[in-house]
Design a protein around this nucleic acid. Structure first.
Lengths: 184, 184
DNA sequence: TATTGTTATACTCTATAACTATA
DNA sequence: TATAGTTATAGAGTATAACAATA
């Protein structure tokens, strides 16, 4: 039998263990996300992002600005505007200009929003438990939480190359992005 | 009243450590996926799914049926057809009916497909290393790989409730259901 | 009748750029 | 000038159901 068609040995390849960790993480997270979103859609007619927005509001004092919400939930501002608009249309949040800073918009969860979260959350937790947590020992959980927090914080701290928080006015040319034959 | 707006104590809540493990995993995986897809799109004009299809082909003997590819890569068959169609249009794979089973379609990676993977992979690995692996010790990596493989296998083995692999054949036909495709 | 795969269709989500308004 | 947010637009991806063809 012939070996794989691709040879990694030129470019400082990844050891099999690391590659497997990456692939397993990717696949498990993707499966979990899929199950969770399926549940949320079926149970509460919520997208994953909408659920996270509501959760973030409900876990605090029920209010946050768009910018505060954008941190960590979504990768573009317009995406958040879109999702917040849907939530508002559904009556689960309200939006009003901030009084401290007229530019900002304060998003506030409504009673109905709290009710939806309360209704959906038990099933959500159940899915997470059955899919993920039940397969992990207490020590696994501690270890996983610590590792993933580390990785997350690292990525948050060091934004990916060539990705300004907002389109920078003086966009530096991306290294090596010369006119490559981009397939075709 | 300063506490969170939502009370979990009714429904056997999640211990904070478990909740944090879940959230950190979700967020880290989401950030990683976003970076990886950004890189793939920029470097090779590939979607994440397309990359995975090519990787799976290139890691084996270069050929697989649609059904074999569908396992683990995508959540609906039509989605795979769509992505495979794009790859074929780009000249990175070919599709031809199987000779053993005329129903099946054999997808084969082309030389150009191998070339694209070879060109993209070093940068891909670099992203994964910088974003994820460099933050983990060797022991972390072993532990993570083992945990995530366990979780992944569990989800694969036990499909989510109310999700038949395919639309269940025992579906009672509704008499008035036939008729032209909804036009509009 | 079950399985493999495609197609038609409709929809959700996302991202970029241009824009407004306030600090 | 920089920041907060919206809008317009356009494209990518997905899922469901109906369909055709082979086993």
């Amino acid at each position: 039998m012939t070996g794989p068609l691709i040879d990694l040995s030129g470019a400082e390849p990844l050891e099999p263990e690391r590659l497997q960790a990456y692939f397993a993480l990717t696949e498990a997270a993707s499966l979990l996300q899929h199950r969770v979103e399926r549940h949320l859609r079926g149970e509460g007619d919520l997208s994953g992002v909408q659920f996270q927005i509501l959760m973030r509001l409900a876990s605090g004092d029920g209010r946050a600005t768009m910018t505060e919400l954008a941190d960590g939930l979504v990768h573009s501002r317009s995406g958040l505007t879109y999702q917040a608009g849907l939530l508002e249309k559904a009556g689960l949040v309200t939006r009003a200009p901030s009084e401290q800073d007229e530019r900002a918009v304060v998003v506030t969860i409504t009673d109905e929003g709290v009710a939806v979260i309360s209704r959906v959350l038990p099933g959500h937790i159940d899915v997470v438990r059955r899919s993920l947590l039940d397969q992990l020992s207490d020590d696994d959980v501690r270890r996983l939480a610590e590792m993933m927090a580390r990785v997350r914080d690292h990525m948050r701290a060091e934004p990916p190359r060539s990705a300004a928080a907002r389109r920078s006015p003086s966009r530096a040319p991306v290294s090596g992005e010369a006119g490559g034959p981009a397939q075709a």
